[in-house]
Structures are given as structure tokens and as C-alpha cells.
Amino acid sequence: MQSASLIQLLGAGGLGFVIGWYVYYINRYRKSDVQISDLLTLIGAIGGGATTALFPAKTDLFGAYGIGLFAGFFSYCLFLILLVSISKNFTADWFLDGRRKKPEDPFIIPDGTAQTVRAMGGNDHGVVNG
């Protein structure tokens, strides 16, 4: 087995972190229910041919990538929890149904702002918020 240098491990972990963060982001802003094909696409994206080409099997590079993926994905979730906990406009219920305080003047939610329609629980349309 070929050993990897520290900078290579950090690079693989960093790439995994970015992909993990983005996977959570895409999942949070998706427009429809999850299908089984979506899950298989996700697996292909995070561990498919491109990853195999970058990080050969049974190497520490693949391990560093997976750890980075985990860190990036769950960091997004932790940041959401942190932001909700320090905000006066959101409570934990936001994770269930997306509820929040109605903004009062001078605050507004501009038209075109992406709706955070996925969190933890289902809403009236059977989908999840955040």
C-alpha cells in the first residue's frame, strides 16, 4: 500500500468536506420527494468512478476523503442548529415545519429568496424542511 503525505491527506479531506457540505445543501433545497434513484445517484456522486480515480482503493486518501465528507455534511447541520439556537426569530420547530417569526419593518424577505423547504419533519406537502 502506498502511503500518503500529510498534505495529500489534508487535500483529500478538504475535497470531501466541500462535497459533504454541498450534498447537504442540495438535499436541503431539493424540490421534490426523495426517490430511490436519487439515493443511488448520491452514492455514485460521493463514492463512484470519479472518487475511485482520485483516491485508489484501500489507501488512506480514500479514508481522509470519507472523514472530510462526514465532517462537511454534518458541519452544515450543526451550523443550522447553531444559527437557529442563537436567532430570536427561529425555534426548534423550524426543523419540523419551517415556522419562523414574521419579519417586522424594517426587515423583509426579498422576493426570489430561496425557500428552505427541508429540515427535519414533513410539511403539508409531505416534504421535509432543512
Binding site: 491527506l9 470531501g16 459533504g20 450534498v23 438535499n27 420527494d33 426523495v34 430511490i36 439515493l39 448520491l42 452514492i43 460521493i46 463514492g47 484501500k58 489507501t59 488512506d60 480514500f62 479514508g63 481522509a64 476523503y65 470519507g66 472523514i67 472530510g68 465528507l69 462526514f70 465532517a71 455534511f73 454534518f74 427541508r118 427535519m120 419533519g121 414533513g122 409531505g126 416534504v127 421535509v128
Partner: peptide
């Protein structure tokens, strides 16, 4: 060891994603 932890990390991410499938009403 690092390889195992990495694979566990991937498993955790995918497990969380699959739970969306359940929460979506399946």
C-alpha cells in the same frame, strides 16, 4: 484505520440521506 473511519463517514452521510426517503412518506 483511516480507511475504516472514512468508510464509516460515507456510511453515516448516506444513512442520513436515506432517512429522507422515510421522512418523505415511505
Amino acid at each position: 484505520m483511516l480507511l475504516t473511519f472514512g468508510a464509516i463517514g460515507i456510511g453515516s452521510v448516506v444513512g442520513w440521506a436515506v432517512s429522507n426517503y422515510r421522512i418523505s412518506g415511505r
